[in-house]
Write a protein that binds this DNA or RNA. Structure first.
Ligand SMILES: [Zn+2]
Ligand SMILES: [Zn+2]
Ligand SMILES: [Zn+2]
Ligand SMILES: [Zn+2]
Lengths: 156, 156
DNA sequence: CGTTAAACGAGAATCAGTCTCACTAGGCGG
DNA sequence: CCGCCTAGTGAGACTGATTCTCGTTTAACG
């Protein structure tokens, strides 16, 4: 989908702009993280980001990746995703609010992203019933992916 | 609520029974973990469980706590709760499906448990729309708790 | 009781994430 | 264009949660 590619490019542009606005310099490592992040369709761990940057020739330190992610997270530009395997992952937050959640297959470990409009509105309505404002929400489903559940017992 | 106390006792009984059925011996450490877990209204970290057991006189090793939790989790008797603070927490899964989710205050760090029937049914309906079976789900809300949001701008 | 292997406790090992520090380089006035 | 100042950076030390290891304990079963 071309629209999504455009959106990602916009996200990178917006993120860099926001960083400038907030008084941050244009460091190479951080821009590399932003650019790589903008190309992902789903979440990556800090280590994965660091490795991929290395493969691309940008030798970015892991600490810088964490620094950049932390900053971006603090500015509401990326969300942390915790799939329960002990590794935090990160993905861009689209300004339009478009986002997805994750389903983890407990048999094969595969992570599937899904969007669901009804779930989102259910979560919005939930806000009205809680004495707690909702800045962000995270939903993680555990179960068997289509592949594993069709092949009968889904070996652990 | 007495019903809930009964349910918790039932959970402990059921968990111990399931462990026997699965061919596990009745070890003191594991039983202590099960019993302590069954008394909690919300999730605890492994370290907290270990500390509390120590206070009660049961000198249970941290490794045994992890072992027990891992086993129980593998048997679908406890759920891991990840609130994003780097500590996994654990709580019993009630066989009846009654459970709650968690809202984290990004200002003060307080964790609030909530139950919401409508959210649960929304999640059940979601299952029908995904090519992914749902064995478990986890919802974490981030925002400001009632206390923090009432005191004006709720610091980042 | 004696045998056997699961369960246990203590501490070592691992590993994601954070912190430190000397060094590099972006931004800016001269 | 040059040099200063500080934010940004990379390597590696550090931390703390979780897992692994290993010698000891003890439940289960005859
Ligand atoms: Zn994703
Ligand atoms: Zn699968
Ligand atoms: Zn609060
Ligand atoms: Zn639920």
């Amino acid at each position: 989908m071309a629209a999504s590619a455009t959106r990602r490019r916009d996200w990178a542009k917006g993120a860099n702009h926001a960083l400038r606005e907030a008084g941050h310099r244009a460091g190479g490592a951080r821009e590399a993280v932003v650019e790589l992040l903008s190309k992902q369709s789903c979440c990556l761990s800090a280590q994965e980001l660091c490795d991929r940057l290395g493969e691309q020739g940008s030798n970015v330190g892991l600490a810088s990746v964490y620094r950049a992610l932390d900053l971006l997270h603090g500015m509401g530009l990326v969300q942390r995703v915790d799939l329960g395997d002990g590794n935090l992952r990160f993905e861009p937050i689209q300004p339009g609010g478009e986002h997805h959640h994750h389903a983890v297959c407990d048999s094969c470990g595969r992570v599937t992203a899904f969007e669901d409009e009804r779930l989102e509105s259910a979560l919005e309505r939930l806000a009205g019933r809680l004495r707690h404002s909702i800045n962000a929400h995270e939903v993680v489903i555990h179960g068997s992916c289509g592949r594993c559940s069709s092949s009968s017992g889904a070996g652990a």
